[in-house]
Design a protein around this nucleic acid. Sequence first.
DNA 1: GCAGAATGTAAAAAAAATGTAAATTCGCGA
DNA 2: TCGCGAATTTACATTTTTTTTACATTCTGC
Lengths: 123, 123
Amino acid sequence: MFQSAAAAGNAYRDEHLLFDHGNTSAYVDLREIILTKKEHELLALLVENAGEIVPRDILLERIWGYGKDIRTRTLDVHIRRLRKKLFPYGDTYIETIFGVGYRFQRFREPRNYMTFMPELVAV
Amino acid sequence: MFQSAAAAGNAYRDEHLLFDHGNTSAYVDLREIILTKKEHELLALLVENAGEIVPRDILLERIWGYGKDIRTRTLDVHIRRLRKKLFPYGDTYIETIFGVGYRFQRFREPRNYMTFMPELVAV
DNA sequence: GCAGAATGTAAAAAAAATGTAAATTCGCGA
DNA sequence: TCGCGAATTTACATTTTTTTTACATTCTGC
C-alpha cells in the first residue's frame, strides 16, 4: 500500500503528461516542466498511487517525515505549485479529497455529445 | 547511462560550436578557444550527454573521483570558466538544473515569425 | 444557513544551492 | 628547484527553493 520509489525507472505516460520517476523534469503536452526535488517527490508519490487517495498524513510522513502532531501548510503550497506547473491540467490531475488528502487521476479525454451519445447529435 | 569518453574521436558540431573529443581546443563561431584538461573533460561529459541532465554527483565522481560526502565548489568554478569561454553562448549551452546538476543543450536557432510561421509574415 | 474545520493563496522569512572574485595550493616542464 | 598556469579553496553574493504566516475561501455536519 502506498508504493514508494520502488517503482523507479518506470515512467508514467498518458494523453498529456509524461513523468519519469528517475528524472526531475516532466512533459505536459510538448512543454518541458522542471520540478524541484520536493515537487518531484510529491508528484511521484501521487502518480505511483494513481486513482487512489493518498492521505495528508501519509504525504507529510513520507516526504517530510512529519508526525501527525505537526501543523503546517507546506503540503498545500507544494500541491498548488505542482498544479500550476501542470497547467492547464492541474486540477484535472490532482484532485482534493476534502478532509482526507489528494488523488492523482489519469487523464481521460473529456466526453462530448458526439462521442458519448452520437444519437443525440444531429437529430 | 551517462556515456563517458567512449564516444571519443567523434566531434560535436552545431551552428556555433565545434568540439572534438580528441582535441583540447574547440571553436565558438570562428574563434578558437583553448580548454584546459579539466574544462575539456567537463565539456566532453556534458556534450556526450547533450540534452540530458548530468547530476553533480556524477560529474564530481567521473571527473574528480569525489564521493558524495565531499563538499567543494570546484565544479561550479569550472562551469563558470567554461561558460566564459563559450561566450556569448555560455548560458545557452550550459544550463543549470537547480538541485540536480547541469545540462548541455544543442544550439537551436531562435524562432522568429519568418521561420516559424512563414504564412503569417509578408501578407 | 451557520459555525467550525479544512484547504487555498499571496507574500514574507528562512534555508539551501549556485555564482563569483580573489587568494592559495598544486603540478609539471624548463 | 623555480616559475607559471591550472586547479582548488575561501568567503561572500546572489538566486532559488522551501517553509511559515496570515488571511481568504470552501466544505460539511448540524
